[in-house]
Computed example of a mutant assay.
Amino acid sequence: MPLLSWRSPTLRASPKLFNSNQVQDALLAILGSDKEPPLTMKEVATRLGYNRRTIFSHFPDLCSAISAKYRSYGKACHTEKIQQSCREVKQIVLKLHNQGEYPSEARVSEIMTHPGYLRYRQVRAALNETRREIGV
């Protein structure tokens, strides 16, 4: 029985030299940067011209710190959006009440910029609290 040779449909790229000092300096600069939004590790790897896994295998701590910085920024943005939605809900409830309309959840969500935020506990609590404050 003849042996079949198997070949990959794509040719493998030639390995390129990894400039460890240059990559480390770049990672430290990115980590120390106040640029917003911070870069993801995928973006960092693309800018440096190396694979993420290659960079991570050489500098796992720096890569983890960059990823943590990105996640922290995302969480802060999310928290700010929820707080903004809470303020918006309070304004809408007061506006509807002043117009003589009952500030139902459905009516409030029709007016909200991002009605999907009503699924969050804090936004729903702001709705209920504001309705309680105005005595509805």
Rank of each mutant, 00 (worst) to 15 (best):
F59I: 02
Q122H: 11
T54N: 12
C77E: 14
E80T: 10
Q91I: 09
A29L: 04
E101W: 02
L28H: 05
H58C: 02
R87G: 10
A65R: 08
S72G: 11
S64W: 05
K16V: 13
A45K: 01
S104K: 04
T113N: 13
A125P: 03
K75W: 10
T46I: 05
M1K: 04
A76N: 13
L118R: 01
L4F: 09
P60Y: 06
W6I: 13
L94I: 13
R53K: 10
G32Q: 10
L62A: 05
I30A: 02
C63K: 02
G116C: 05
I30Q: 02
Y70T: 09
L96T: 00
L27N: 01
Y70F: 14
G100S: 05
K42D: 10
F59H: 03
H114V: 12
C63T: 07
I134C: 08
S57C: 02
A125W: 08
S104E: 06
R132Q: 15
R131P: 08
V44W: 00
A125C: 09
R121D: 15
C63H: 00
L94S: 11
V108C: 03
K81N: 14
Y73D: 12
H97S: 14
S67H: 12
V123H: 03
L39D: 07
Y117S: 10
G49F: 04
S67Y: 09
R12S: 10
S64E: 14
L127K: 03
P15H: 05
A76R: 13
V44P: 00
A68Q: 14
A68N: 12
A76H: 08
G135R: 06
L17N: 11
Y117L: 15
R52H: 08
P115F: 03
R119F: 09
V23P: 01
Q91W: 08
E110H: 08
H58F: 06
Y50T: 02
I82R: 14
R7I: 08
L27Y: 02
A29K: 01
R47M: 07
Q24H: 04
Q24K: 12
K95C: 10
L11G: 08
Q24A: 06
V93D: 03
S109N: 02
E129D: 15
P37N: 08
E43F: 04
N98T: 07
P115V: 06
L62K: 00
A45M: 00
A45N: 02
R53L: 13
I111G: 03
A125M: 11
Q91V: 09
K69S: 10
M41G: 07
P9H: 06
Q83D: 12
R71N: 15
V89G: 02
K90Y: 06
S20Y: 05
R47N: 11
